[in-house]
């Protein structure tokens, strides 16, 4: 019983050195996402890059949540995962629709669309 109670109690605080490791991974993932989104021209890759950006934010939220011993951040991530799943469903449906029409997923091929 005491062991169970000890397990359910809040864990010890995370050191800021450990936090830095998590944040480093998160920032690197976010940067890869942004750079990939801006430089790649394949729709699936561009979409994967946005997913990387989402998950980078998720890692940061979980890490900060654990660091501050405040569970709001982890709750947040559960919602983010759900929303990202909905977004993925919609974006991939669109990609399929586009591929059926034009047999290509290359954003460069959109001749008539120039910002």
């Amino acid at each position: 019983m005491t062991a169970l109670l000890a397990q359910s109690a809040l864990p010890a605080a995370m050191g800021s050195g450990v936090l830095a490791h998590y944040l480093f991974v998160s920032v690197v993932m976010f940067a890869i996402g942004v750079i990939g989104f801006l430089t790649r021209r394949n729709l699936i890759i561009m979409f994967l890059c946005t997913e990387l950006m989402f998950q980078a934010a998720g890692i940061a939220l979980v890490a900060f949540s654990r660091y501050h011993l405040n569970m709001d951040g982890q709750t947040f991530v559960i919602f983010v995962l759900t929303v990202a799943a909905a977004e993925a469903a919609m974006a991939l449906a669109l990609v399929v629709l586009l591929f059926r029409r034009s047999e290509s997923l290359d954003a460069e091929g959109w001749s008539e669309m120039r910002g």
Binding site: V34, F47, F54, F64, A91, L94, W110
Partner: peptide, 24 residues
């Protein structure tokens, strides 16, 4: 639609990252 969704997803990911820093 593809352009809108992709740009929209990238922008909301930015918002989310900002939110994680505000929370931090």
């Amino acid at each position: 639609g593809a352009k809108y969704v992709l740009f929209g997803a990238a922008s909301s990911a930015m918002t989310l990252y900002g939110v994680s820093l505000i929370y931090a």
